[in-house]
């Protein structure tokens, strides 16, 4: 019921409202929110196995570059590069994750933060990424067709590209979160929760913790990668500074603010942080000051996230 209402809002009510009010710029905002919440959802999954991940910016950047390079240099269709960039990031996550997932708590947080910075440096230094100039004028997504049947038309022929990207992002968001929800409530999800509580104990009763945490980290990075790839398609350019450390920290903040104990926490957190920041734009140079002050007040008063408010937990309490 709630899910139906949510889907209706996202796919019908919001476009209708925007159409009526004529605020087309909201599409861009909401598309960004949807993409950022996909990446934050990934971060949330690493929280779920008890790791503080501040490295999602690195994977978003990597995913963006993979898509940009495949499209501009090798002429791939954009639609193929979405899963490819996700898979690339997942593979990268497995390689990096095998050593660093042995670290815990603050150590893991620190090394993932460093990873974000290193991704930027790597993008500057590697020959294929075109250094500080980045890759620009990336073409819009082309047509996606199977056996001559057009499934998604060429974006450059659509009159309203913003709406198209909005649907692309929200559909992916819904699919990602449905997947996350399914994962968390499956057997694997329960095993992940056991990692969060006590890894030694989980391991002693036969849970393959090394395997599970690498899988979780890979899924997380996959989500980061696809969101990065679509971001690049929207902005049609990518630079080493496209996903700075601030983004990685923001992904983490989104999860925290929404509440770490709830699958849909990152979505709510992203929405609030993004819109809060935009609304404060009118305050001019005090924007950052007010924003961070509100953030700190929220953390002090609600250390366990917005979804921990009694308002949202009525049904839990009734059970």
């Amino acid at each position: 019921m709630a899910v139906g209402a949510f889907l209706l809002t996202v796919f019908a009510v919001v476009p209708w409202l925007i159409h009526v009010s004529g605020r087309w710029d909201f599409y861009y905002t909401l598309t960004s929110v949807a993409l950022l919440s996909i990446a934050s959802g990934g971060v949330w999954l690493t929280f779920y196995i008890g790791r503080i991940n501040i490295g999602q910016g690195a994977f978003a950047l990597a995913g963006g570059y993979v898509s940009a390079i495949l499209v501009t240099k090798y002429g791939f269709s954009f639609w193929v590069t979405i899963p490819l960039s996700g898979l690339f990031c997942a593979l990268l996550a497995v390689l990096i994750g095998l050593p660093i997932l042995r670290l815990r708590g603050v150590y893991f947080a620190m090394i993932t933060l460093v990873l974000t910075e290193v991704a930027r440096l790597a993008a500057l230094a590697l020959p294929i990424t075109n250094g500080a100039r980045g890759i620009s004028s990336i073409p819009l997504p082309g047509e996606l067709s199977i056996f001559g049947l057009t499934i998604i038309p060429d974006f450059s022929t659509i009159g309203n590209v913003k709406l198209a990207f909005y649907y692309l992002a929200t559909v992916l968001m819904v699919v990602s979160f449905a997947g996350l929800y399914r994962l968390v409530n499956s057997r694997v999800g329960h095993l992940c929760r056991s990692l969060q509580q006590n890894e030694e104990l989980a391991s002693s009763i036969g849970v393959n913790i090394a395997y599970l945490r690498v899988i979780a980290f890979a899924i997380s990075s996959f989500l980061g990668g696809i969101s990065g790839a679509i971001f690049v398609a929207i902005s049609r350019s990518i630079y080493p500074a496209s996903f700075p450390v601030k983004d990685s920290v923001d992904f983490m903040l989104n999860c925290f603010l929404g509440g770490l104990g709830y699958v849909f926490g990152p979505m709510l957190g992203t929405l609030m942080i993004y819109f809060g920041w935009d609304l404060l734009f009118t305050t001019g140079r005090f924007q950052l000051l007010i924003y961070s002050a509100i953030l700190i007040m929220l953390i002090v008063t609600l250390p366990n996230g917005i979804l921990s408010l009694p308002l949202f937990n009525k049904r839990e309490a009734d059970k």
């Binding site: 983490m252 925290f256 250390p303």
Partner: peptide, 22 residues
């Protein structure tokens, strides 16, 4: 107050933004 000790990390990140703003 916090259930999870990670909350302090969020606070520290918020503080970093605040000091930047100041």
């Amino acid at each position: 107050k916090s259930v999870r000790e990670e909350s302090t990390m969020l606070l520290a990140a918020g503080l970093a933004f605040l000091l930047d703003a100041v």
